[in-house]
Computed example of a mutant assay.
Amino acid sequence: MDSAFATIALDQVRYSLVWEDSRTLYAGLAIAPTDHVLVITSAGCNVLNALLAAPRQVTAIDLNPVQNALLRLKCHLIAYYGPGALRGLMGFDGPAAVARTWRRVSATLPVELAAYWAPFFGAHPAGLLTAGRLEGYVTGFVPTLPPATQAALRQLLAFDSVAAQQAFFAAELDGAPFREAFVAWFDAVNLSKGRDPALFRYAPVSGGATFYARLRQTIATQLVRDNFFFRFFFFGPEGLPERLLPPCYQRRYHARLRQLLPRLRSVTGEAAAFLATPAGRTVSKASLSNIFEYASPAEFRRVCAELRATAGPPLRLLYWNLLQDQHYSPGPAEASVSAAAQARLSREDGCFFFRNVRVLEARPALRPTALLPVSASSHLLSSSLS
């Protein structure tokens, strides 16, 4: 695929967190035991979350070899250590725990892994979760605000009802100077410090204003105290309740992940090109993050047409739009997922960054797989263990 992402330097951890909600992953793909699932690696979170659903195979793919190296480190920690090692290096328990865990783990890592990651942890003492270019920038916003504004933001975590939460936000935060500071920090000029400017090539709208509108919508519809992405965005990884973490980082699923690791492989490359290979034609479900954000509308349509013409089993694609709403309109005889179902996924996704979740039957089945309700998808893992 002709993508702006292929034009940037792939020599660093650009993403240390997957911002696409795992509940949407489960609801949108309805992963079955016979599926071969393709997932954009990114920080590896949704690769591991997909693996927890116990499909036949998971293939992680990324153009950036550093992102695949990050996944390999996480898999090594899962395979050979208890859940405390992964939790410690992620940064959930603070910098002291990162340093303590790295000293213990580095002594027993394979030589090549230890040599690769030692400089990284030296440069990022707060751990993996804030080490990505984007995440370091995002979590740098709140410390720039006045203490009273920081305290008001934290007060949002104290409410038991959305109505009370929204009323407080409207009275204490929704206006200058907070709105102006947020929009300025996350607009294109400043946001390029967290994401390469080339990645905004096709964005038709302002990032800062759009993200602020989505933040307001989230505060009006979801309890943010129970929203992992809101809490990480504003307050970082420390102090997050275990129950809010992505499933792959919860202690109760650690042993399950270890058991399922043999079903995982990783590939360095481009997802659309991989799907056209013999190995790719065995993929039945794919979670493609927001890769179409970086392609032109014409290129998106071309890729969709090629995927629909490729032989293989029915293929369901799940992807997220950030600032560019890439949407394929199927013909009258083509299977598709209803607009209402896609709108529901968009509305209920936990990350306010994304408000256009799309599901495409790229190689249509006669009877498309039904979407799982997002509210029910949280039970997917527990039922798969029974």
Rank of each mutant, 00 (worst) to 15 (best):
M1V: 14
D2L: 12
S3C: 14
S3A: 13
A9D: 03
A9V: 02
L10I: 05
L10W: 07
L10D: 04
R14M: 10
R14G: 10
Y15I: 11
S22Y: 14
S22F: 05
A27N: 14
T34V: 05
T34C: 05
I40G: 04
S42V: 02
G44L: 08
G44Q: 01
G44H: 01
N49R: 10
A50E: 02
L51G: 01
Q57D: 08
V58T: 06
N64F: 04
P65G: 12
L70A: 09
L71K: 00
R72E: 05
I78C: 01
Y80K: 07
Y81D: 09
G84H: 01
A85V: 00
M90A: 00
F92I: 01
A96S: 11
R100I: 03
W102M: 02
R103P: 09
T108R: 10
E112C: 07
L113D: 13
F120Y: 12
G122R: 15
H124N: 03
G127P: 08
T130W: 04
T130I: 10
L134Y: 12
E135D: 15
G136R: 15
P143Q: 12
A148K: 14
Q150T: 13
L153A: 07
L156Y: 05
D160W: 14
F178Q: 06
R179K: 13
D187T: 14
A188P: 06
V189Y: 11
R195D: 10
D196Y: 06
A198W: 06
R201P: 02
A203P: 14
P204L: 08
T210D: 11
R216P: 04
T218D: 00
T218C: 13
F228N: 03
F230T: 15
F233D: 02
F233G: 01
P237T: 00
G239Q: 00
L240M: 14
P241E: 00
R243M: 03
R243E: 00
L244A: 06
L245I: 01
P246G: 06
R252S: 04
R256H: 10
R258Y: 00
R263T: 02
L264E: 04
S266D: 04
G269R: 05
A273C: 10
A276K: 13
R281K: 15
A286V: 06
N290I: 03
F292D: 12
F292R: 09
Y294G: 13
S296Y: 03
R301K: 11
E306H: 11
G312T: 10
G312D: 10
P314K: 09
W320F: 15
H327F: 12
H327S: 15
H327V: 13
P332S: 08
P332W: 02
S338E: 11
S338C: 02
R344F: 06
S346Q: 07
R347L: 13
E348R: 12
D349W: 07
C351W: 03
F354V: 05
R358H: 08
V359D: 06
P364D: 14
A376M: 12
L381D: 02
L381R: 04
S382E: 15
S383G: 07
L385S: 15
